[in-house]
Design a binder for these strands. Structure first.
Lengths: 140, 140
DNA sequence: CTTTAGATTTAGAATTATTCTAACTATCGT
DNA sequence: ACGATAGTTAGAATAATTCTAAATCTAAAG
């Protein structure tokens, strides 16, 4: 288990490259239950560090993603969203309201092998996207 | 089986809404083996109809997608690509060169049900994305 | 054959998301 | 403290896509 606070994979809390700005961006992503856009991260980061710039938010998000501390979700032509969950997982998107939720299909090894066989790619990762109607939209 | 030429799902060849420009855009997408961007479709459509505008290409692509005559693939933050294949299928993307290829996992019903169960969505469709190294990049 | 209404196309402006640039600042090792 | 390196800033630039308003086409009605 990771310690609850401040553990990120490669850049540890002691890594000098984890600057104040990057730390703030990381905290913002971690503090949110859902998947924020860069614009939302910028807004919230500004509350903590009013001088932070948009470019730094983007740079930090890229840096943190490369370090494996956060992950990026792109969907359709919409703005990227950033996710504190870095373990492999899947996404469902509501065709009615656009809501994006995480779920996890366990045991994707066989599926990945099947996909690799059919595409002739050397497999590195697999991701499942479900489109459908979310519970909220269904009950309206 | 669909007849080989000119069958699109809702807008048939006799549909007055399938204008000359839309027909040209449809032909361009159909004539390509791979997945063209809007810019590439525009370039090729211009060869057939030099006065066609960028906006019309986008409008036509949207229209044809809504009619179910073509499909749109979005991947990462890259430009959308358009695909003549409209049946359910999956995509593999090369993490080395970016190449995008189609493949098909048959029998996705059980997977879709499992995804629906875990996400609590009413399922409508499922899509699998494999990331990996394509045969060309592997042999270099 | 005109008129009209509605839909489509056009060219270019506008918008949105993201990246780039160049100057400035902070930090680290010596 | 000094210079090197890396990071931050503000704003410009870029890329993809959509919007706008005027012009054009089409089909139907008179």
């Amino acid at each position: 288990m990771l310690s609850k606070k401040n553990s990120i994979r490669k850049a540890s809390i002691d890594d000098p490259a984890l600057t104040r700005q990057r730390r703030v961006v990381l905290d913002v992503v971690r503090e949110s239950d859902d998947h924020l856009t860069a614009a939302e991260v910028f807004e919230r980061a500004r509350k903590k560090t009013p001088t932070i710039s948009y470019a730094t938010v983007y740079n930090s998000l890229r840096y943190l993603k490369e370090q494996g501390a956060i992950s990026e979700i792109t969907f359709g032509n919409a703005a990227s969203r950033y996710d504190r969950e870095t373990a492999r997982h899947d996404h469902a998107i509501c065709t009615c309201c656009g809501k994006l939720v995480d779920f996890d299909i366990s045991d994707t090894m066989e599926l990945m092998r099947a996909a690799a066989r059919r595409s002739r790619f050397k497999p590195e990762g697999i991701h499942i996207t479900l489109r459908g109607i979310c519970p909220d939209c269904r009950s309206e």
